[in-house]
């Protein structure tokens, strides 16, 4: 039994109902899994399908043995699978602390404990906790989005391009944070454009092309693969 198991999933949006033509991935407890591929391959659609924002037309989406296909987003989150979208992933008019409070909406009993942990890990957020979320820089915004997800004590985090638009140092910080979160036993599936650096922190990776699985394997091996270096890293 897999932790997260996605198999033969077909999904899309309204008239474009076959964006994912046939996709399968799995994530084991405590793993970091990268999902890579060209723009428009369906990576975000895959995360949205797991998160309950897109209902699959067919296929399997299971978490710890139970189907989560077609559940509402809040029901998926309640099972411990928390999605952090690429954009619009914080509440700009709420203060940072209010954002964290909403983040912990599904784990109210552990609010104090989770808040202390998050502030401990991200002291920048603690210092700015009375500011509106909209006042944060891109890197801090992304940290806040992850911190909100941590407020429920998730078992699996789905991150969509967490380093998009960040400076190299902010991206480094963020990858460091991802490793630290995994260290606490949280599994992570992340979509990244920053392929090589993402592979460096990942255990395994999947490559999607045009709504289908193209390659998959150990991150270290994929990072060495000549084909992959050529396609994703622009090497000759």
């Amino acid at each position: 039994m897999s932790f997260l198991r996605v198999e033969d999933v077909v999904a899309g949006y309204g008239a474009h109902d076959e964006i994912l033509k046939q996709v399968g991935i799995s994530v084991e407890p405590g793993e970091i899994v990268s999902i890579l591929g060209p723009n428009g391959a369906g990576k975000s659609t895959l995360l949205k399908t797991i998160a309950g924002l897109v209902a699959p037309r067919s296929g399997t989406v299971e978490f710890i043995g139970g189907s989560i296909a077609g559940l509402r987003p809040r029901e998926v989150s309640r099972r411990g699978v928390v999605f952090v979208p690429q954009e619009n992933n914080i509440f700009p008019s709420l203060t940072i602390e209010e954002n964290l409070e909403i983040g912990g909406h599904l784990a109210k009993a552990e609010y104090r404990e989770h808040l202390a942990k998050v502030y401990d890990r991200m002291p920048d957020l603690a210092a700015r906790r009375r500011l509106p979320g909209g006042a944060l820089s891109g890197g801090q915004r992304q940290l806040l989005a992850m911190a909100m997800a941590l407020m429920v004590g998730p078992r699996l985090m789905l991150l969509d391009e967490p380093t998009a638009g960040l400076s190299p140092t902010a991206a480094d910080d963020l990858f460091g944070m991802v490793s630290a979160i995994r260290h606490d036993g949280v599994a992570i599936a992340m979509v990244e454009q920053n392929a090589l650096r993402s592979l460096m922190v990942s255990d395994r990776a999947y490559i999607l092309v045009d709504g289908r699985n193209a390659r998959s394997g150990a991150a270290r091996e994929l990072a060495q693969d000549a084909d992959i270096r050529r396609i994703f890293l622009g090497e000759a």
Binding site: A51, L53, R72, P73, R74, S77, R78, V82, F83, P85, N88, N89, I90, F91, P92, S93, L94, E98, E101, I102, G103, H105, L106, K108, M148, V152
Partner: peptide, 23 residues
Amino acid sequence: TSIGKAMRAVADNPVLADIKGID
């Protein structure tokens, strides 16, 4: 109040509020 903050969260971003457990 918690319900008031949930209301402001939905006003800001209903999809994200849903992900966070708010209907």
